[in-house]
Design a protein around this nucleic acid. Structure first.
Lengths: 221, 221
DNA sequence: CCCGGTCATGACGCCTCGTCAATTTTCATT
DNA sequence: AATGAAAATTGACGAGGCGTCATGACCGGG
């Protein structure tokens, strides 16, 4: 048999083998169902059974793909982290000034959060007041990357010699908490949120954009 | 019968009735066991059964005191929130300047976190990478109080007219995330953490205390 | 056409859940 | 003290989730 024929790029592209095909498909089936169910019941209340019930598969099949509901959740989180991380890193590398570094980071993040609302809401919504955050390896790697980016920016003289670990923590804290609030507002305004955060990091309280309209919490002009 | 004798303050003080007594005692028994077990297994992995097994009580009794493991956790959280909230509020009311407002808030919070390490660790430790945060009514009320404190400080001209909601979120985000990092360092230094946060909010990045010693993450002098 | 390997299936044993009828404990009254 | 009602504790129970595994279906190569 001519191996080069069977394994030619063309054939592999059109027929990756039924085996592989259903494997990928099932995985996606489970992930989609999970997203759905998490959004509906909240992460905490969801059971593995709920997920497979939203799927044509049998209970045992679930465990061929994931070890637990946590692992599905990780996979969903990681998709996000993997999508956003290179973008953030790239923006930060391009930054010529501290301000650019900070503002690009926040803007990119908030825009992503706003676009990806569905995924983010999946976590927040839950009957009780539990809030879950998965610090998956992929997410943690994102944090670490931010820290090393800060460190190398410091080496380049962009930053003063700050405590990169604490600074990273502060950025992460503001990003997540502000992101949450942003999602509660209507209309969604990632740019404004990013401006707020940037001003805070650039010049502290006194530089914050004045609250043009009061009652931002509930009213919207 | 002389009611005033039976219900005299003295008697009530020494014997509040066995009924009441065991009720309080059992509640505490459960709370203590829960703290223990949460710290050991992590919040996510803990079951109601694990908690009562660490207690001389029967399974049914648990439900006379709490509806679920979430509610026990809430109760533990709330103890903390109730203990810390008045302190924070008081400090902020005394503040004559913005800087005092900010620095007192952070210092009080970080000192509390550091003292109360046990309670805080109970949440963080878990086999998987799940991080749980309970936004109980009591905790949310604490956030709201911070926001109204900001608003009234603004009214007094202490703050510029900022977006109090976002500012509150930023403070909360930094406090929690930095608190977490602080717990990972040795020796524990709440004052340094508070100084870092305060400098950030007062003057932004450029005011941050220089990292006197590098390698803060792992090394310690 | 057939065989070896891979994967889906769903029943199984174990465990937790929250409930509830039975029982014990407390307490006011006689 | 004796009594009876109210309150709280107990543990067994049905429902249902968990992760596993023997079974069988299905794919793909010879």
């Amino acid at each position: 048999m001519d191996v080069s024929l069977l394994k030619s790029p063309l054939l592999r592209a059109t027929s990756p083998g039924k085996r592989e095909q259903t494997k990928v498909q099932n995985r996606q089936l489970i992930l989609d169902a999970a997203r759905q169910v998490f959004a509906e019941l909240g992460y905490g209340a969801t059971t593995v059974r709920d997920i497979i019930r939203a799927t044509p598969l049998a209970s045992g099949t679930f465990y061929n793909y994931f070890k637990s509901k946590e692992e599905v959740f990780q996979a969903i989180r990681d998709e996000v982290a993997i999508a956003i991380r290179p973008r953030l890193h790239e923006e930060r590398m391009k930054a010529k000034t501290v301000e650019e570094f900070i503002s690009c980071s926040f803007r990119t993040f908030f825009e992503y959060v706003s676009d990806d609302r569905v995924n983010f809401r999946a976590i927040r919504h839950s009957a009780d007041s539990t809030r879950v955050r998965m610090d998956t390896p992929e997410v943690i790697a994102g944090f670490e990357e931010l820290r090393t980016d800060i460190e190398s920016a410091t080496a380049k003289g962009l930053f003063p010699p700050v405590d990169a670990d604490y600074l990273m923590a502060a950025i992460v804290g503001v990003a997540f908490e502000l992101g949450e609030r942003m999602l509660e507002r209507e209309p969604q305004d990632p740019v404004a949120a990013a401006e707020f955060a940037t001003a805070l990091f650039m010049g502290g309280l006194r530089s914050l954009p004045y609250a043009a309209e009061m009652g931002v919490t509930k009213g919207n002009a």
